[in-house]
Design a protein around this nucleic acid. Structure first.
Lengths: 194, 194
DNA sequence: TCCTAACTGGAACTTGAATTCCGATTCCGG
DNA sequence: CCGGAATCGGAATTCAAGTTCCAGTTAGGA
């Protein structure tokens, strides 16, 4: 057999059925976490996917690994909101777009909410550090612009703002329409016309 | 031995050491939940109290029972905030007092926060239903007065407001000073001077 | 088609935390 | 001061996940 050389990082292509199952598992897990939250059991996910637990573990060595894969995808949605927001010139409008969009993203998916909730440093299980740093940096720019323009409360800094976003997270999690939650937060953030 | 008659509901007075231990357990549990959250282990609580797990279980048949006892006490703090608020005549001031006070209560104690978070109906483990009904009713009066006076956003109803309070819960849980969190929420709730 | 490496399913094992059990110890009325 | 009922402590048990293992089943190259 001509041993096929593989550079270390390179992945041997999966067998057709394996790839199919991997997708199934991922889809099932996505759905399961989205509606039941992070404590669905692996068995349940396997059942949803129509495979055995062993198969789930073949593709993801650990429940955490599976979760992290999904969280990375979900958080990409949240992060894409910053990029969009930064494309707006007007500082307040940018912030507004960001908040509204984030609220909407959070509203529909329990998985995203739970992931977002443990994004802040200090959470017992801080996830996704490298990419999150980028996120923080961009949000900081958003805030800096707003501060500079004098439209955002002085006393709201980056950690404070992120905590407030966690607040919105909880709020929409409890069933408030994202639009309303965003309205309230935005009005609360805007510098009062004294 | 003259069998002492006890009406069914009546409690035989605990032996001196038993009462002492009960208090210790309660105090230890209060402290443990307040700082480490709901998933401290029973062993840890027992150790803090300087007793064995068996003793903890003698006084509280179940972890949930112990938690519920504390939650009832904690939520009493939250609830007392409504009473205080209702003593203010001016509708907006009443709301303000309520929000600020609640934020402060939540800020200092993780146990209260976790309890508050699962107060809303729909949480998997809805606790404390009977007293909670009273709480909802009083808060509803607070809102009604504010609505009547035209100082509170029309589109914030009771469930929405409670969800926003859950938002404040999460916000202070992530380290924002309660005063700031309350400021932002209050400014967001006030009807915009259009 | 045949062969074999790769993959599958689910029973069995491991883990960690809640709960039970029971011999030892401690209160307290007589 | 005594007896025994009430209480204590913590080892042992139970229970609910997560994770491992391996006999059986494919996919797909020769």
């Amino acid at each position: 057999m001509a041993e096929q050389t593989l550079t270390p990082g390179e992945e041997r292509p999966l067998r057709a059925d394996a790839r199919r199952n991997r997708e199934r598992v991922l889809a099932a897990a996505r759905a399961a976490f989205a509606q039941e939250g992070e404590d669905v059991q692996m068995e349940a996910i396997a059942k949803r996917a129509g495979v055995g637990v062993g198969t789930v573990y073949r593709h993801f060595p650990t429940k955490k690994a599976l979760l992290d894969t999904l969280r990375r995808q979900w958080l990409a949605d949240v992060v894409s909101g910053v990029a969009l927001a930064l494309s707006y010139i007007e500082p307040w409008e940018a912030l507004e777009v960001f908040v509204r969009r984030t609220a909407e993203t959070l509203a529909g998916n329990r998985g995203v909410r739970e992931a977002f909730g443990r994004l802040q440093p200090g959470a017992q299980e801080a996830i996704w550090s490298p990419e999150f740093e980028g996120y923080r940096r961009e949000v900081a720019r958003l805030l800096a612009r707003a501060h500079e323009a004098g439209v955002l409360r002085e006393d709201v800094d980056l950690p404070g703002f992120l905590a407030l976003m966690c607040g919105i997270n909880a709020t929409v999690g409890h069933g408030v329409e994202p639009g309303l939650a965003a309205d309230v937060l935005l009005q609360g953030l805007r510098v009062s016309a004294s």
